[in-house]
Design a protein around this nucleic acid. Structure first.
Lengths: 225, 225
DNA sequence: CCCGACACTGAGCAAGCGCTTAGCGTGCGG
DNA sequence: CCGCACGCTAAGCGCTTGCTCAGTGTCGGG
């Protein structure tokens, strides 16, 4: 049982998010695209610190300390603390959007695609809850132009979900009176996983993904499976 | 059409939350229990500031300024900034718990009670989204003992929802495979309203409450109405 | 007309913040 | 073996933070 659904006609090069460390916490491999090494260590430290205490409560000294460096080292790789948050937010949202789009563009019925979407989107929010928490809840700490950029990415996620629901309604699979409202509720439900998920909890990310996929299919009235 | 469901056998003295200002924002009347007047003005100012910028990004000077007072005046009525947050959090959670319990203890079928619960709980999170945002998302800013106290209140909310769902399953009204998981998802869905709700949005708090109540009834498989 | 109680202010303290700068060690091209 | 570019640190600058404290104006009782 693989964690994240492997879609048949997905992208060419897929970094399997669930491989490597099964525990979920030390998601260093997920930031492979960040170079050089010291910059990545700082970024991972920042993700942990931001998720734990929030952006404003985190000091640059704390971030540098977690990365095993002096406070000044941070400013060799990042112009400001806000730039660090932006890099994290950008990469995280790119990843979340890709997960959603891959599911939306995969084959099968609308119900199958929505199931895959919720399953992997929720799975990511649980497995990478540290990243997801920063990405989803520290948006207001970004500067205006950076925030606008991220909001644009979120619109893409929104559109993908609305698309799947609309398709299902068109094909008679779903029965939903308020498509924009239900879209909002579905995404809202998925995102909030990042707030409450704890590593020692009763459920694995995959289990939560499966549970939520079922609940969402009920929300859209997918009675006939 | 009244905003918050008026349960027939509810409590004796009910402060109608939706009365007074229809706009929703200046919820000064909701804090009538806070005295003296200056203490309440400071608390309302703190709610606005915390909701807007977050607890850590808010300065005591900002709070005092919004209340039209000097920074030092804050410390006549509150020992620390954290005590202010605690008072807000305590009152807000008391209110949220009461809303949930009133619905759970009201008469009728499990579906009717769950409908009322989600409708009013969500309605409150939308109408009082400023308060709700602080109450639901600034929990980590509280000191350990204050946080523990609030978490205890949340357990009560959780229990009320689980109770209603369990009753529905017992009576054959609902069909849910995972009661604790579904309980969690329902509360999660409701709480996240406070994150995304904006006053200028397309829907009123009552409309969102109605939409969400319908979605939740689908989640628990309440097919036979 | 005085007096103390009271709610509040102006000024400011110690600590901690984001960020800068001068300098140091190390490794690599010549 | 030199020299310099590079990644990093120690020290610290200017500012803001939560919070304090010596007053100040006001007001009711005697």
């Amino acid at each position: 049982m693989s964690a994240v659904e492997r879609d048949p006609e997905g992208s060419d090069e897929v970094v399997d998010e669930s491989a490597g460390e099964a525990a979920g916490e030390p998601d260093d491999a997920a930031w492979a695209e960040v170079t050089p090494d010291a910059a990545r260590r700082l970024l991972v430290a920042a993700v942990d610190a931001f998720a734990e205490r929030g952006y404003h409560a985190t000091t640059t000294r704390d971030i540098a300390g977690r990365a095993g460096m002096s406070p000044a080292a941070l400013y060799i790789h990042y112009k400001t603390k806000e730039e660090l948050l932006h890099r994290i937010s950008r990469i995280g949202h790119d990843r979340a959007l890709k997960i959603m789009r891959d599911a939306a563009d995969s084959g099968g019925t609308a119900a199958e695609r929505l199931d895959r979407a919720v399953r992997s989107f929720v799975g990511w929010h649980a497995l990478r809850h540290t990243t997801a928490r920063v990405v989803q809840y520290e948006l207001d700490a970004l500067g205006p132009e950076h925030r606008a950029e991220i909001i644009e990415l979120r619109r893409g996620t929104d559109a993908a979900v609305r698309e799947m629901i609309s398709d299902g309604v068109r094909d008679g699979e779903f029965e939903v009176p308020d498509i924009p409202g239900t879209t909002l509720a579905v995404i809202s439900l998925c995102i909030d996983v990042a707030r409450w998920f704890k590593v020692g909890g009763a459920r694995t990310p995959e289990e939560i993904g499966a549970l939520y996929a079922g609940l969402v299919l009920r929300m859209v009235g997918a009675g006939e499976k």
